[in-house]
């Protein structure tokens, strides 16, 4: 699947197994600035919101690559209201019905490289219960809305993050739940909150046996 040169406005897109999304160097995939084209990702658990621009569930060998731009236009979802997941926050009144830029749930052999992600309405990239994840050369600039996380990794295994540059508003690299074998190398980060955040979320028994 190729995004050629030019701007293309989309809503929610699901990536199936063995799909490569290539965003060419002068291509820009724009998330719609309106809520209607978005849906919750099918099968994505609702905690922390599951409305999303790009997602994959139970998929193998998904790749997103290329030197183009994925722009969530998240500034158009700004209300001044966050998700209230911080200490003492009332989660029931949190604003979670805005689209994350990418969610990968229970995927294996995920590769994201070279793409520039920007202006998400919520978190940039959520990696939930995945295994064998490689993020290389990714650039994130995510400072247009509250709770603008960079990488948000929950209960995943064998995750490598290398050569990435992240500027965001909230957690740059959150490691929640039960993660194992995560490496972060040769990256730069800047944020208004935490870079490496550990310990939030619930511990869960891994769906994978310990190697």
């Amino acid at each position: 699947m190729v995004v050629p040169a030019g701007d293309f406005i989309v809503g929610t897109v699901e990536l199936k197994s063995n799909v490569t999304l290539h965003v060419s160097s002068s291509g820009r995939l724009l998330g719609s600035g309106k809520p209607e084209p978005y849906t919750a990702g099918k099968g994505v658990p609702p905690g922390n919101g599951n409305v999303v621009l790009l997602y994959a569930v139970d998929a193998d060998n998904v790749t997103i690559e290329g030197r183009g731009i994925i722009d969530g236009q998240g500034d158009k979802f700004y209300t001044g209201k966050g998700d209230n997941t911080g200490p003492g926050g009332n989660r029931a009144e949190g604003y979670v019905a805005r689209p994350h830029q990418a969610i990968f749930y229970r995927c294996r052999n995920l590769l994201v490289r070279d793409v520039f992600f920007t202006r998400s309405a919520y978190h940039c990239m959520r990696i939930l219960e995945c295994r064998y994840v490689h993020l290389d050369g990714v650039r994130i600039h995510n400072r247009v809305n509250l709770n603008n996380d960079g990488f948000h990794i929950n209960s995943s295994q064998y995750v490598s993050i290398a050569n990435c540059h992240v500027t965001c508003q909230d957690d740059a690299c959150a490691l929640f739940g039960s993660n194992k074998f995560v490496t972060v190398t040769n990256c730069t980060f800047s944020t208004r909150w935490s870079i490496f955040r550990f310990g939030a979320g619930r511990r869960r028994t891994s769906r994978y046996p310990t190697a």
Binding site: C187, T188, F189, S190, T191, R192, W193, S194, I195, F196, R197, F198, G199, A200, R203
Partner: peptide, 26 residues
């Protein structure tokens, strides 16, 4: 490289039943 971070670079909070081990930064 961590730069212009007006918060916490490494923030670890351990709640009930949490287990954290073998974490290295260099």
């Amino acid at each position: 490289m961590i730069y212009d971070t007006y918060g916490c670079v490494i923030k670890m909070r351990f709640g009930a039943e949490s287990r954290v081990e073998n974490v290295a930064f260099s």
